[in-house]
Design a protein around this nucleic acid. Structure first.
Lengths: 341, 341
DNA sequence: CTTGACTGCTAATGCGTATTAGCAGCTAAT
DNA sequence: ATTAGCTGCTAATACGCATTAGCAGTCAAG
């Protein structure tokens, strides 16, 4: 098969009895040029094309023209993790949908960085095969982001990104306001002593949640405990919560919330009777829980869709850099209740 | 930076005072050719390359070499269905893994057939963008498969396929032996009256299961009920089972098994005390069940991996057509027990 | 019958790289 | 003195497509 030559416009031309140039024009000539090719010839060429299944080589096309209707998708982690309920699938669903609607194909840049460390700029820019690319992943490489920003290759990040030596085009979730809304809800239910389980620094998504939380801490509300880490033993965390007297606990990670709730139940405490639990995210796969936690919804599919649309805009019309945050609607759940009186 | 034109080997050549060809050779010439370029010249060129940050344009590179290192993935249904636990994800995981290992990128042919009907050879078929492609989906279009087989484009099907006017290269699951093993297990446990819930015709996957089942029906064992359909009301199916006197029921679809077991429980019957239940597949998303059904494992990831490896073989070395069936190991589960005495 | 406009095409070129054939200049052997 | 062989490169070309300039023919107007 390696020896089999793929069809070229030349072959088509010969079959249709015209020149290579004519084939190219029939395929995608400007209207003015097309007007000069009679219907009959066009149909003859089209027929040969259809019956042979010929498709222009995107590489050559790109070479000559620059565009090939392919969107690259780069993920800093494998796109399909072993854990079933994975992180990327919803994004990909949205991306696929929009790409299909816009008639683009998707190139998953899986080859980049064969080892443990994935790098966009690893082996010659395979990236450039696509007209532009979407970048996703929890942890971006800052240096790479900077290079992307300073280059002239169209890209859009999924998730808010900053500090890249220039504005980063992105579509993200508004975790700040999502978090703030939940804190205010807790406050309205009488909670005055709050706990926060999760980090406050580093990645933007983490910073945003913390900022939303911090901004909502005003008169009458107090942060009585901050466990600045994810994945701590549930027992310890629970001890700290009880000792702090917190009545509402905010978890950055669903997995933590699930474990702490289970630990609490094991000790005869119950959520939300003894303390409320609010979840702000779920990156890590959590054990299944019978509890429906109060949280906010991250519109992942919509993020994928909008990021794709934005990328197409940037490719096709050199649109200016946009930064979009999508609203994260609260999810009622069963774990936020009135403060126990 | 955005305004700067991309550097070419020509620019590098001028700066280093050599020809473009020399630059190319320095970058990636064969050892024999390299041997003829003195250290001193090589270093001069390398230095210019490093100080300018030049990177070869991958497009032009592929153009010259002929191959893309891109594998196409065509699915007859959208690759990322809304249902979370989807059918394709495990395959894609394996495919991605192997593609990465082989340093290929993946092109998801999402553009093909925007409407409800996906077609490989739909107008504007972009399949040939990739060096070869994987085809998956539950229902293949026979005509398209024939066309693929008779063409010279490298492809590999996931799942056994026949009747395409020639041998189809595939990696599938050995449902026949998987099923047979389960029937024999049931027989060893004393079951003599068996029921089969699911179709016996059409798609290969269905045929294989039925064949495995039929082959295991020998002396001492009897098929007392065949519900030749999937998705029948659980109550009806249960009635039929009870009336038939079957002690072990084989379900082609997990979803059916789940519903029938629930219906049985509602009537005070229990599995596997009153009858055993064996599951042979799960295409349709099933309700969650607390039961761990006896079944066989379909090594989807491995299928994806091996299919990818096979495709690469066909692309790179025109390997002959292979047909691989992977063993489906039995899954113990809790629903197959001794026949009630 | 000349000019001009229009029709229906094609030849030629460029995109950036990889690769091959081969050219000078030299040395060593015949 | 010729040949053979080596060194250190370069010119030329192919890859498949898009695009532009322009050629040959027709037809109508002047």
């Amino acid at each position: 098969m390696a020896g089999t030559k793929r069809l070229t416009q030349h072959d088509i031309a010969k079959l249709a009895g015209v020149s290579q140039a004519t084939v190219s024009l029939v395929l995608n000539g400007a209207p003015t040029a097309l007007a000069r090719i009679p219907q009959e010839t066009r149909e003859r060429v089209q027929h040969v094309i259809r019956s042979t299944g010929y498709v222009a080589d995107p590489i050559a096309r790109r070479m000559a023209k620059g565009l090939n209707r392919i969107l690259g998708v780069f993920t800093y982690e494998p796109a399909f993790p072993s854990e079933q309920a994975d992180f990327f699938t919803p994004f990909l669903l949205g991306i696929e949908e929009e790409a299909q609607a816009q008639n683009y194909d998707l190139l998953l840049l899986t080859g980049a960085g064969v080892g443990r460390e994935r790098k966009i700029f690893a082996d010659g820019n395979r990236l450039r095969i696509a007209d532009g690319c979407l970048v996703l992943g929890r942890e971006f490489d800052r240096a790479e982001l900077k290079r992307l920003v300073s280059g002239d290759y169209p890209f859009v990040a999924i998730g808010r990104r900053e500090d890249a030596g220039g504005p980063v085009p992105y579509v993200g979730g508004d975790y700040t306001n999502g978090t703030r809304a939940l804190v205010e809800k807790a406050r309205a239910l009488g909670h005055e002593k709050l706990a926060y389980v999760g980090p406050s620094g580093s990645a933007e998504s983490v910073v945003d949640r913390w900022r939303g939380f911090a901004e909502a801490i005003t008169e009458g509300v107090e942060l009585v405990l901050h466990v600045d880490e994810v994945g701590r033993p549930a027992g310890e965390t629970l001890d700290a919560i009880v000792a702090s007297g917190a009545t509402a606990v905010f978890f950055v990670e669903l997995a933590d919330a699930v474990r702490v709730e289970a630990a609490a139940r094991a000790r005869g405490l119950s959520v939300p009777e003894d303390f409320s639990a609010i979840v702000l995210g779920s990156h890590v796969r959590a054990e299944r829980s019978h509890m429906q936690f109060t949280a906010f919804d991250i519109p992942r599919e919509e993020m994928g869709r909008q990021a794709t649309a934005m990328l197409v805009r940037r490719i096709e019309s050199a649109a200016p850099i946009e930064q979009i945050l999508l609203t994260c609607e609260p999810v009622e759940g069963q774990t936020l209740a009135n403060k126990r009186t």
